[in-house]
């Protein structure tokens, strides 16, 4: 099995799926000749031509709006939004149109569309190149939202998203692109959307998280293991739909839950996961549910001390988990 970076896994999946399905087109800002600002789509225009890998005008509403039209008329568009922070000009198209078309047409029309966007901070990206925007979309019925944490998942979830009949937002943590590597099988496979992954079994507490934070939580778990604290980690992989069953299972098994995300606290996925546990597993808990999340400030600042104060880190996870274990 080949070892790939997170970024390579995404690129190779795009390539493999495009070879397999002629209906797939990619477009967005700088995705063609330059291969994207992060080089995720590098080489794809060369292989598939300018009709299937398109440098579009700088207009997110048009990118997503035309993708909706193209999807309805028989293509499988996989548009890229250059940074998740710039998805908002297209918010209207995603939330009012893509998400509601199947419902409002009484099932007559569907929008098989995958929107890829790099998100997340800790890369000196400041307010507008660091945002976590998933909660805005996870709130909307009709959309699916996936966030892979490993190259293996990046492939399986992207393939599943492309083959899905409904609009899927696929968020890629930009700090994971080159730093996270792993084995990726050559053959095509999918990871069903809505299935969480038990990353690590443990006895004392559960960390429920997703995306880049999974690797941070794993590091924290290793540190805590040496202190005799046994940590279970559940990687949500999909934040809409959530894998309610696995969330409740892990909560019941360890009785202590720490939910971690980089997105800010209030209105984040942690609130939803907490509510599910409180509703369905309250009497299995041995401690109040704990959340560790980005602070409730408008966005991540640039200057290193401020950026560091904002970011959820392995150390902060370790500290929170230690506190919870001792409760």
């Amino acid at each position: 099995m080949a070892v790939m970076s997170y970024l390579e896994a995404i690129r190779e999946t795009l390539r493999q799926e495009m070879r397999h399905d002629q209906r797939i087109i990619i477009y967005g800002e700088d995705v063609g000749v330059r291969g994207g600002v992060f080089r995720v789509t590098e080489g794809l225009q060369k292989e598939f031509g300018e009709d299937r890998v398109i440098d579009s005008p700088l207009a997110e509403a048009a990118i997503i709006g035309t993708a909706i039209g193209a999807a309805v008329n028989g293509l499988r568009p996989v548009p890229e939004i250059q940074f998740a922070d710039f998805i908002f000009p297209a918010f209207n198209q995603i939330v009012q149109e893509a998400a509601r078309i199947r419902y409002r047409s009484n099932g007559e029309f569907g929008v098989p569309l995958v929107i890829r966007a790099p998100f997340g901070g800790g890369v000196h990206g400041a307010l507008y190149h660091s945002q976590s925007v998933e909660a805005f979309f996870a709130h909307v019925p009709g959309l699916k939202v996936v966030i892979p944490s490993t190259p293996y998942d990046a492939k399986g979830l992207l393939a599943a998203a492309i083959q899905d009949e409904d609009p899927v937002l696929y968020f890629e943590h930009k700090a994971a692109y080159r730093s996270i590597k792993g084995e990726v099988p050559e053959e095509r496979y999918i990871i069903p959307i809505g299935k969480a992954d038990l990353k690590r079994p443990g006895k004392d507490l559960s960390i429920i998280t997703y995306g880049l934070m999974v690797s941070y939580a794993q590091k924290a778990a290793e540190t805590l293991e040496k202190e005799g604290i046994s940590v279970e980690i559940l990687d949500l992989r999909s934040i809409r739909p959530l894998d309610v069953e696995m969330i409740l299972e892990t909560a019941k098994r360890t009785g202590k839950v720490l939910i971690v995300h980089e997105d800010n606290l209030t209105g984040g996925i942690g609130g939803e996961v907490s509510a599910l546990i409180a509703e369905h597993a309250l009497f299995d808990l041995d401690a109040p549910i704990m959340r560790l999340a980005g602070p409730d400030v408008p966005a991540m600042p640039y200057s290193p001390p401020l950026e560091h104060a904002f970011m959820v880190t392995s150390d902060k996870i370790t500290e929170a988990a230690r506190k919870l274990a001792k409760f």
């Binding site: 602070p295 409730d296 400030v297 408008p298 600042p301 290193p304 001390p305 401020l306 560091h308 104060a309």
Partner: peptide, 12 residues
């Protein structure tokens, strides 16, 4: 000087 991390919360 760099900003004081405590100022992260100011001016929301």
């Amino acid at each position: 000087a760099l900003p004081d991390p405590a100022t992260l919360w100011r001016y929301v």
